[in-house]
């Protein structure tokens, strides 16, 4: 069912994309048009459905599903869990974001090796990643819940402070920090608008809509991917998947945008 609906969408998508690439100026209008067009059969919903199926699928040496996974609200509770991440988890003694927690459940509940479970953390044109489907499902179960990451545990505070430090840390071949591109109102790289991410006004709309479906490449993307791809543009080395550094940067963004009702997974350029 998933596949057939995707392919039914494909012509509309191709059309929208062709329109997008013609004239950068009209990008915004085109995205709005596209968003209307997909309102009835949102691809986001398809990712959510596929993610739910994966969540319930028995996998790994232990032949277990992820249904007993504790995302912070108790084993098996998915409703409202995503909006409360990142947070401190006593069982791992770490601050974790969604992808970190999913990986933890894959290894602990399903008995999969870390190596196997992280083989494809980011998808591509032909093949989305398991992480992307699962993120869509879990995030979708937080719609309407106020974004409220953990802020009380000392490790949560340390993660926030580290994230803030990394956000302003200028390094790499081109001397960029995150703030180089996300530090001033109303700026663009080519036609892509750059939200200011270090102020509540800018961060709220962003953290309320990730993970997100990207129209430009017809892929569903996670926040771990977003951070990874911005470090690529910064000419930095690659951050390790769900490392403390990436979780801290995410924590800084989410804590800066906290209070906003979650309304994702979103649709982006």
């Amino acid at each position: 069912m998933f596949r057939s609906r995707t392919s039914a969408l494909a012509p509309a998508l191709a059309l929208a994309l062709a329109a997008l690439s013609v004239q950068g100026q009209d990008t915004k209008k085109e995205i709005e048009k596209y968003q209307k067009m997909i309102a009835d059969s949102s691809p986001v919903e398809l990712y959510e459905l596929q993610g739910e199926a994966l969540w319930k699928k028995k996998q790994g040496p232990k032949g277990a599903s992820l249904e007993a996974c504790d995302l912070g609200r108790g084993p098996g509770v998915v409703k409202g869990a995503y909006a409360r991440l990142p947070r401190y988890f006593p069982d791992t003694d770490r601050v974790m974001d969604l992808e970190a927690r999913l990986l933890h459940c894959m290894t602990s509940l399903q008995g999969r090796t870390r190596e196997e479970a992280t083989k494809r953390v980011f998808g591509d044109d032909d093949n989305p990643s398991e992480m992307e489907y699962l993120s869509a499902y879990v995030a979708g179960e937080s719609r309407g819940v106020a974004v409220s990451p953990g802020t009380r545990h000392p490790k949560e505070k340390a993660s926030y402070e580290l994230g803030r430090t990394l956000f302003f840390y200028r390094a790499g071949a081109w001397d960029f920090s995150c703030a180089s591109c996300h530090g001033e109102e109303g700026k663009r790289i080519r036609m892509q608008e750059l939200p200011v991410l270090s102020t509540p006004a800018g961060a709220r709309a962003v953290v309320a809509t990730w993970p997100a479906y990207r129209v430009s490449n017809s892929q569903f993307k996670t926040m771990q991917w977003r951070i990874n791809d911005c470090y690529r543009q910064m000419r930095m080395p690659e951050p390790n998947f769900v490392s403390d550094a990436t979780i801290a940067v995410n924590m800084f963004l989410v804590a800066t945008g906290k209070g906003e009702p979650y309304r994702g997974p979103g649709t982006k350029r």
Binding site: A171, A173, R235, M236, P237, N240, S243, A245, T246
Partner: peptide, 15 residues
């Protein structure tokens, strides 16, 4: 928490 990839070597994290 970072690793070298392609020409983006680890010396780049040092300011």
């Amino acid at each position: 928490d970072f690793h070298a990839r392609g020409q983006a070597t680890m010396d780049r994290v040092v300011q």
